[in-house]
């Protein structure tokens, strides 16, 4: 054919460009006017989340949250931790304490928001698991460092940053005795499974934890003095929800520098997996009800200064409103 004689032009589809040189692929997108990300979003646009609650019938509370292609399931199950061991006269045998310094007097000071009590008795157990094949980087085997770190971040958010769950709501007391005595605790097992991972797991996982905790309904448990045991009421109408503190939501950002000729940096809200792999610098802001900041984390680079953090806080406050509306409409 005549056309076959023309010299071949070196050209390849965008997907090849993305694989060959991921960082310049992202930079070229952001250099266009208006700046646009490979996913089609503007730098300050988050992905739209969806929430479904109580889809797991065997958990006391559950939620499925999805933002873009990141989807997680969170289940909350309550189990009873008895402080008394054995039946009858053998009660008061074993008390579960984690640290030698923690004793019952130590709990009276509520200045740490009950964190000491929750921690010492491990009343809240969080675990995040990456589902098989949830992302390209998934390797079978024991929990990766990434999963462990995320679990730890969620645990910290839950216990120390937000004090969402107060220990009083988990205590099961002997109400008939003259002096109210805690006989047992509810232990909340919060298990999060990531079905699909496309970046920014923390925001999605945290929202799923909040939604699942808000949907949690525990049976009425009481101390039966005759049986000397904790008894649960099977009556579904008597199941009660948890008393939760102020809502708080996180917003994560990735920062990429060197976009303009002057080395200007761009903050990308809610980065997806590709953007996370290219951008090293990241910022996380957690906002509480009323617009107060509960947590700021920044690391991985020097490009984002104070103005950048101010912008992140502003975007995080807007994001808080979106999550709040969604969670409140999902749980009427």
């Amino acid at each position: 054919m005549a056309s076959s004689t023309t010299p071949p032009v070196l050209s390849f589809p965008p997907q090849t460009f993305q694989k060959l040189s991921p960082s310049s692929y992202l930079l070229r997108h952001l250099q266009s006017t208006p700046p646009i990300r490979p996913s089609g979003r503007s730098p300050n646009v988050f992905r739209e989340p969806t929430i479904h609650t109580n889809s797991l019938s065997h958990a006391h509370g559950s939620a499925v949250v999805r933002t873009g292609d990141t989807a997680v399931v969170c289940g909350v199950r309550g189990e009873i931790l008895s402080l008394t061991n054995g039946e009858g006269k053998a009660k008061g045998g074993v008390v579960v304490l984690r640290s030698s310094e923690d004793n019952d007097e130590g709990f009276v000071g509520e200045e740490d928001g009950g964190e000491g009590e929750l921690r010492a008795r491990s009343l809240i157990v969080t675990n995040l698991e990456l589902g098989t094949g949830c992302s390209r980087d998934y390797h079978p085997g024991p929990p990766s460092d990434f999963a462990q770190t995320t679990t730890s971040r969620l645990h910290r958010l839950l216990l120390s940053t937000t004090s969402l769950i107060s220990p009083e709501s988990l205590r099961i007391s002997d109400t008939h005795a003259t002096e109210i005595e805690t006989k047992a605790y509810w232990v909340l097992y919060i298990d999060i499974l990531c079905i699909s991972l496309d970046g920014n797991i923390l925001d999605t996982a945290w929202a799923s934890v909040i939604a699942a905790l808000r949907s949690t309904r525990l049976p009425r448990a009481y101390w039966d003095a005759d049986l000397e045991a904790v008894v649960c009421d099977p009556d579904l109408a008597k199941y009660t929800g948890l008393q939760l503190g102020q809502l708080a939501f996180t917003a994560s950002f990735a920062v990429i520098s060197g976009v303009g000729d002057d080395g200007k940096s761009v903050i990308l809200s809610d980065p997806d997996e590709f953007e996370e792999s290219v951008c090293e610098e990241s910022v996380m802001v957690c906002i509480k009800e009323g617009g107060k900041i509960a947590r700021i984390e920044k690391g991985g680079g020097l490009a984002c200064g104070m103005e950048g953090l101010g912008e992140c806080v502003h975007r995080a406050r807007n994001r808080f409103d979106v999550w709040e509306r969604l969670v409140k409409s999902a749980l009427v």
């Binding site: 910290r156 900041i293 509960a294 700021i296 984390e297 920044k298 953090l309 101010g310």
Partner: peptide, 22 residues
Amino acid sequence: FTSAGLLGFVESEGEFEYEDFE
């Protein structure tokens, strides 16, 4: 901070306003 005064790492926890943070 770097020796030039650039903010390199933040880990803040509690309840605060942005002005306090500054």
